[in-house]
Amino acid sequence: MAARTDVWTTLTDPLIRQNPVTLQILGICSALAVTTTLATALTMSISLTVVLTLAAGLVSVIRRHIPETIRLIVQIVIVASLVIVIDQILQAYFAEISRALSVYVGLITTNCLVLGRTEAYARHHAPLPAMVDAFGNGLGYSLVLILIGGLRELFGKGELFGHQVLPLADAGGWFTPLSLMLLAPSAFFLLGLLVWTVRSLYPGQTEAPEHTPPLRAEPAE
């Protein structure tokens, strides 16, 4: 029974409590760049989860054979090969989304999240837990991406997955699109607010203030 709860916590912990994006600041680059629409966010999430799970499994299988000194290069080559496969699949079957994602699929290679998980977890654990952990982290990342992507597409265009959800003012409805939502700054604001929300729900995650202001001397009467 104990083993099963272990697997369950490994899988569910990274979803919100240990979320890789909001708590560990890993893999933010792509989290912000591809979230202008829900479709690209979803494609990116799936690609990253697949790469992460497979990479963790592979690294974990050969973990006893990788020499300590060159382990980073070995891990990067494994990740890069998987990313090339994913990139080719996307180009072949989802050409339009692949163009929208531009270089960001290739950048999964240097996504700190992938290297962070293989380096911190998969290197020391058996293949099954490593893959479960990687899958959980992939899901946590996907959750943030889909949330931000959905919000940006809904308020930026009034659409979800390209279907009109809110009637536009131009077409006789009531909704005026917020074009700021489609630009870079809004992604930063949304993620900042998300971090604030998560940390208010789990106060243990707040960072200790770096400086404490000196106590003000009471004015002598």
């Binding site: 971090v195 604030w196 940390r199 208010s200 106060p203 707040t206 960072e207 400086h211 202001p213």
Partner: peptide, 20 residues
């Protein structure tokens, strides 16, 4: 660093808002 921010916003949260 001396600003009196809400606890959840200090650190990473405010950095995102600044970057925005």
């Amino acid at each position: 660093s001396y600003a009196d921010l809400p606890a959840g916003l200090s650190g990473l949260g405010i950095a995102f808002v600044l970057a925005g």
